[in-house]
Design a protein around this nucleic acid. Sequence first.
DNA 1: CGAACGACTACAAAAACTATAGCATGGCTT
DNA 2: AAGCCATGCTATAGTTTTTGTAGTCGTTCG
Lengths: 214, 214
Amino acid sequence: MAQGDAAQPLSPAQERVYQRLLEHQRRTGQLPDLSDMARSMGVHYVTLKQHLDALQTKGYLTFESRGRGRSPRLELPAEATGIPLIGDIPAGAPGIASAHVEAYLPNLAASGALRSDFALRVHGYSMADLIQPDDIVLLAAVRLASSGQICAVRVGEDDVTLKYVDALPNGHYRLRPHNPEYEALTVHGSELTIDGVYRGLLRGSAAESLLLPN
Amino acid sequence: MAQGDAAQPLSPAQERVYQRLLEHQRRTGQLPDLSDMARSMGVHYVTLKQHLDALQTKGYLTFESRGRGRSPRLELPAEATGIPLIGDIPAGAPGIASAHVEAYLPNLAASGALRSDFALRVHGYSMADLIQPDDIVLLAAVRLASSGQICAVRVGEDDVTLKYVDALPNGHYRLRPHNPEYEALTVHGSELTIDGVYRGLLRGSAAESLLLPN
DNA sequence: CGAACGACTACAAAAACTATAGCATGGCTT
DNA sequence: AAGCCATGCTATAGTTTTTGTAGTCGTTCG
């Protein structure tokens, strides 16, 4: 269903309105007043409302009218504003695009150094006790900043695992678990896919209470 | 400054308005329209607004008017709605009441089983690697539900530490660290203060991005 | 031509803001 | 004790703004 979003094409004006909403939510964390927005876009209130209605019927947002005089409650779906929580990345998948999205986490600080692009529910014990099964790990979708960081990696056609990644001199990488019962692995860069770099985690009630149902 | 809240006394009517706001935010997560609220309380809009103005000057909320016709933005301070993040509980303190509040976390699921009443920034290594220094641990302020849970405890006049707490038959308790380099400790219940039971944790960017400055 | 799109005008309803005034209560002066 | 004033709570009246509804007009595209 996550790929069903793009099914409905947007007209140019609708696209402008939608982008404006996204930008406003990123900047201020809130959605603008219809009147203000109409003024700043140089159109009349009614025109803007027509576009919002169109966007709602196409599924890009929800527009809940609350009667005359009351500011309407409009909301962008979690796909647009939150970060996806991925249960499983299928083995051999090209990236997170085709992943299984379980739910969404609300906008966790889009600010520069701390940004996280997606989240992963942990399955194995390779990083125990530091990272437990069922923890939710926040990841930034960058390749690799510095050696020794924890990354979500895949080797060839295998499933995703979390490991320390050490860069070795000759184009090889060492994948080092935290759990001493697991073995380190050395692979060449051509076999290795780094899906994201570890940024933080949620555990227990912190995880449960932040999930937005998809 | 956290104890400065109670300095300004509220008149009965102001108290009613304030309690109403708290209740509405707990139930719906949002604050009501002034008009609706006034009607449901049986007073006029202006009366309610005057109370809100009074509450603002006394520091109980912020009321940001945005011009005629626009719904005003009103917000309860973090003390009222969020859970406090405590940097240190002074040794020998009677509880979390006299603790040092660093910041506040936004309302994390006030729903029954998962509720957390306060948060603690971890200092030592007694629960490593499961819980690291600088992690933020969410705690429920209950005594002890079942043996073997992780709790924030104090022994006598010592500082707060996180340990597994096992109930022993003769009124004693065993405080068991996760880190094998630390030693377990057996104390009598009269020496032991349980400040809270572990519910979850935040680490890294998850922690940083959720903090509300006090 | 008809349908979709983008824009406008005009009017109605509800909310938010401003100003003013009527009471009650408590404290102060005389 | 009586009178006066300040303060707080409530209400009424009227203005401005926003939102909602209905209907119109021109352009573009199949």
